[in-house]
């Protein structure tokens, strides 16, 4: 039954948790959104483990960003000092953890969206009055993500096959190598997008103004229940945030 939840309901859930994740600034509230997201992803049978496995190459980058967020904030009480130089402050730690929470919330949102079948997702967006072109672009974007991860993995393999042990390199060189990993993937994505646009145009994409669809989504009682629960949860989290302020 859960698997058959309307893609529009899943989009609503994702919209709510990711908006709350971006809007809230206090650590306890971000943690509450994160835990709610985790719970919902489990109810919707999202494969978080697979997602983590797929993005494990860039987890290192996230960790670097969290550290950067933490050490460049000077306000707050000092936590770690080396001589007279303050390395980490309470505010820095708090901002770093908040950034980490937001990243995790976005990842959970991605895992929930990944439970939708692509055709249903496009139709959901179209029935939410999004122009078909935009819905199609969104679905292509989502479809491209695993391919991009695959390419990141291939580039990393190619670098290692040149005899370079990334783990044994000093931090400066390791950071340099990150640019070697990402540049071809972004350049490849642009080339692919160009080829894909040509290919869809050749197949008569947008040949006619009006499109019809054999798939029409309809809300079931479970969907209405899920929508109500989502609004209730969101309202509760907003109220809790107001109360704590």
């Amino acid at each position: 039954m859960i698997k058959k939840i309307d893609p529009r309901v899943k989009l609503l859930i994702v919209m709510c948790i990711s908006s709350l994740g971006l809007a809230f600034t206090r650590m306890p509230m971000l943690l509450a959104v994160f835990l709610t997201g985790m719970l919902l992803s489990q109810v919707l049978k999202a494969d978080l483990f697979m997602l983590i496995k797929r993005i494990r190459i860039i987890l290192y980058l996230f960790a670097v960003l969290v550290i950067i967020q933490s050490i460049f904030v000077r306000s707050g009480d000092s936590l770690i000092n080396i001589g007279s130089i303050t390395i980490l402050t309470t505010e820095g730690l708090s901002r770093g953890l908040a950034y980490l929470m937001r990243v995790l919330i976005i990842l959970i949102s991605g895992a929930i969206i990944a439970t939708c079948d692509m055709r249903g997702l496009i139709q959901g967006l179209v029935q939410m009055k999004l122009p078909y072109d935009f819905a199609f672009m969104t679905s292509i974007g989502i479809k491209f993500l695993p391919l991009l991860m695959e390419e990141l993995k291939d580039t990393l393999t190619a670098i290692q096959l040149r005899g370079i042990d990334i783990k044994s390199l000093p931090l400066k060189e390791r950071t340099e190598i990150i640019s070697y990993i990402f540049t071809p993937v972004f350049a490849g994505a642009l080339t692919k997008a160009k080829k894909l646009s040509l290919s869809v145009e050749c197949r008569g994409f947008r040949a006619f103004d009006k499109r019809t669809s054999i798939l029409i989504l309809k809300f079931s009682p479970v969907d209405y229940l899920a929508i109500t629960l989502t609004f209730l949860l969101t309202a509760t989290l907003i109220a809790a945030n107001q109360y704590f302020i």
Partner: peptide, 23 residues
């Protein structure tokens, strides 16, 4: 490890795009 194998064996991919990464 992969780097250890890479020092012994050179592998040319079917699609060279997969192994060219520098600008």
């Amino acid at each position: 490890s992969l780097p250890e194998i890479g020092r012994k064996i050179g592998y040319l991919f079917q699609n060279p795009d997969r192994q060219i990464f520098a600008p």
